[in-house]
Amino acid sequence: MVGIVGYGVYVPRYRIKTGDIANVWGADPNIGKALGVFEKSVPGPDEDVATISVEAARNAVKYGRIDPTKIGAVYVGSESHPYAVKPTGTIVAEAIGCTADITCADYEFACKAGTAAIQTCMGLVQSEMVELGLAIGSDTAQGRPGDALEYSAAAGGVAIIVGDKKPVATIEDTVSYTTDTPDFWRREGEDFPSHGARFTGEPAYFRHVGEGAKSLFRKTKTTVDDYDYFVFHMPNGKFPISMGRQLGVPPEKLEDGLVVRSIGNTYSASAMMGLARILDIAEPGSKIFMVSYGSGAGSDAFVIKVEKEIEKHRGQVPTVDDYIERKTYVDYSVYAKYRRKIVALG
């Protein structure tokens, strides 16, 4: 059955405390508690979606003991691709040692481009068009200085290799829920995204994640009780918990995936990072229910079962927690320099 045969993550080393950002703008320094985001990851000045994707993909290849020449498809989902035109995927493919006989494209669907890439790879593997597909969700998210997004917009990447031989976790089912809902966007040529403020909540995030989840429950004829872990896209620490409350998910089943508290919202990598954190620790047989969300708007819901195979792969590459713990704090001025917010520096 189709599933995850290897996965890897990458989180940059730098962190800024949301309280430090609040101090710059005169906001309540306890904003971390209100948002459920206490610190967020910051990419180094020489890191971008291509470098983060490569690091995550190299970890995935090593974890799965994959021969990269067997990979037939590479998709990188992000809303911060370094080039507006010119794929990130080709950089990744070359840097992990793929052959030229691959199909490759970049995806963009706000925060769910990475899970869309997983679905594409599932289709290609199941139709036997490729043996292995590499799906990446990766972002170096930008928030306009002083905007609410600045407290959460973070950087990180997750790479998942999809195949049907000896998966460490099978992907039992997936559905999507998609409408035209402009809750968040970035126009061509703009440096920072715009958003609908409170409109991003009820009609956008909660409706799409909720409907996606319900649709998958119906399709698989399961309920909350059939799952050990839940992951909902994490724009902040509050939304996924409210979502869980609406769907009747006990908070402890969400707890292990809530990486947003310590690294922020890694956008295209956000839900996948929660999934990776669970794959790092879950016992074989565990069942995971994940729903990603992308503004604009849509959700991809997945049912994933952890297999015994996973035990043979742990300890090969750094875990999500290894990356979370490897950190150095920067203050707002260094953050502004690294994130190119100092206009005069270009």
Partner: peptide, 16 residues
Amino acid sequence: IVYGYKFEPVLKVTGH
């Protein structure tokens, strides 16, 4: 944009 190698201290790998 030119990408390539740099080096970093070897990372701790715990393997949960």
